[in-house]
Design a protein around this nucleic acid. Structure first.
Length: 322
DNA sequence: CATCAGGGCCCTG
DNA sequence: CAGGGCCCTGAT
């Protein structure tokens, strides 16, 4: 599908805003059939809004202190004024453009140990590129699998059910709509070598298609209630819920679950030791960072993965199982 | 060649 | 609330 038409507009995120830290997360695994792409100062992605599919390109037109985004939406057919306004709002929500970071930055300033990290990434947002359903699919392929296998599963799903789009002379893929999968036979999904996750994905797709769950309603709930709703979903447990609460629903204080592979990395990052008990890590992080526990960890986590691009960090390589 | 854990979760007892 | 089973892969 070629998206030939385009409308451009300017967005002003609340200062400070860190463009590259926001639009590129080196800790996320890259899949071959790209949903998004980044180079310094430019970001692209396929953008699902309701049932429509768009291309989104955002260029950096400002600085961290005086942020300005040059955005373009690519589309086919028509795009009404109202629809465009809706897209702008959705972009603001997903990329947290209006987020007030004053309290967080005050906390960061008093942190002797990690202040250099916070300073370096000041204004970095949590990145939530996808709809709740799309992120749910990604969370499911992450379960009980190493990075390479997660990549394989997502690529297999996208190559069979995804939608290929072209805009700005680049090719991207988008995740299908829930209703596209709700009637699929479980075996057809299993043939993609996603194992027992086939059952999860089928049932989740059905629940979304039948409106048993509504992303916009979940956005209005507080953390605990949102979590309760997410855990009710078939195939979504504590770890997947944590990912969704942070990435899709923008709750900054969800440091209630530590997965085994994260455990090793946190132990080294925060204590320079091999394995510190998880409840010690949790207590320490919650005591120091409270309402910003997950956001804080996100800054420190992404920072080490940025560093990994240029320097070899031996202990980290061992923990990132490819 | 076999065995096993891995970016978890469900189900059973 | 503990523990077994689950799909598949790459590591050992």
């Amino acid at each position: 599908m070629k998206l030939n038409l385009t409308k451009s507009f300017i967005l002003f995120p609340k200062s400070p805003f860190h463009f590259d830290g926001t639009f590129h997360k080196p800790s996320h695994f890259p899949n071959n059939l790209k949903l998004e792409d980044w180079e310094p100062g430019i970001y692209w992605q396929s953008l699902r809004i309701g049932k429509r599919l768009f291309g989104l390109k955002i260029k950096n037109g400002g600085t961290t202190a005086k942020p300005k985004l040059l955005a373009s939406v690519f589309y086919k057919g028509s795009l009404s004024h109202n629809e465009l306004e809706g897209i702008k709002k959705e972009i603001s929500w997903r990329f947290e453009l209006d987020q007030d970071f004053r309290a967080f930055n005050a906390l960061a300033k008093n942190d002797k140990r990690f202040y250099p990290v916070f300073k370096k990434w000041m204004g970095m947002r949590n990145l939530s590129q996808y709809t709740l359903y799309e992120l749910l699919i990604i969370a499911v392929v992450l379960q009980n699998a190493t990075v390479r296998r997660s990549q394989q599963m997502l690529d297999a799903l996208i190559s069979k059910y995804g939608i290929k789009i072209e805009f700005d002379k680049k090719v991207f893929y988008a995740i299908w709509l829930p209703e596209d999968l709700s009637k699929t036979k479980e075996q057809e999904l299993r043939d993609l070598r996603i194992g027992y996750r086939a059952k999860f994905i089928k049932r989740l797709s059905g629940d979304f298609a039948n409106k048993k769950i509504d992303e916009f309603q979940l956005r209005t709930l507080d953390k605990e209630n949102a979590k309760k709703e997410l855990i009710k979903l078939y195939g979504i447990g504590p770890e997947s819920a944590r990912i969704l609460l942070f990435e899709a629903l923008h709750h900054y204080d969800v440091f209630d679950h530590i997965a085994p592979w994260q455990h090793k990395i946190y132990s080294m990052l925060f204590y320079n030791k091999k394995l510190v008990p998880t409840n010690t890590i949790q207590k320490d992080i919650l005591r120091q960072y409270g309402d910003y526990s997950m956001l804080t960890v996100h800054y420190i986590w992404e920072d080490i993965f940025w560093r990994r691009k240029h320097e070899k960090i031996d202990w980290l390589e061992k923990e990132i199982r490819l």
